[in-house]
Amino acid sequence: MPVVGVLALQGDFEAHAGALQRAGARAVEVRKAEELEGIDGLVIPGGESTSMLKLMDYYNLFEPLREFGLKKPVFGTCAGAILMAAEVLNPSQRSLDLLDLTVERNAYGRQLDSRVTELTGHALGGGPALEAVFIRAPIIRRVGDGGQVLASYQGDPVLVDFGQHLVATFHPELSADLRIHQRFLEKLGN
């Protein structure tokens, strides 16, 4: 059974751990650099990206996370996508720079603009529409080389596969559908 770390500095890491377990993996919480050893992949959950960045700095996790991402698969949702992108807007902030992606924070607006919607026409092997829960979500403004857009909403990419890595601007961990977590698990060990 693959072992997937879930970055547990802040955010909805428990929801991800539950989804990973239902999808057939073992999930472990990661708060320190040494906890990155022995895991096959990592999930960076939803939450506040500024809060997670601070906690990475407090515990010297920034470089170890970046090094991990250069070698093994990482799946980021919402704040996780912001932290993995090469470029962050609104405001500009540091990131792990794992993906050639430009992401704008809180791009739909405030909480009143959060929403649940159905994504049809996705490229996730056919099947029914994907439910997408957007919470103070970012918008992907640019997808660089190597990114395959799997789903879009209002013309903007919301689920992008980079081969080794996967990012979503919404929260598949808050829906019952496991297809996106399963897609990530398929990347492990390749």
């Binding site: 547990a8 506040e48 649940v116």
Partner: peptide, 18 residues
């Protein structure tokens, strides 16, 4: 319902925080 899940969704994102 979707409206309530969106409300709880933000609370989920604040978990583990101050």
């Amino acid at each position: 319902d979707e409206g309530f899940r969106v409300k709880v969704g933000l609370a989920e994102m604040l978990k583990g925080g101050v």
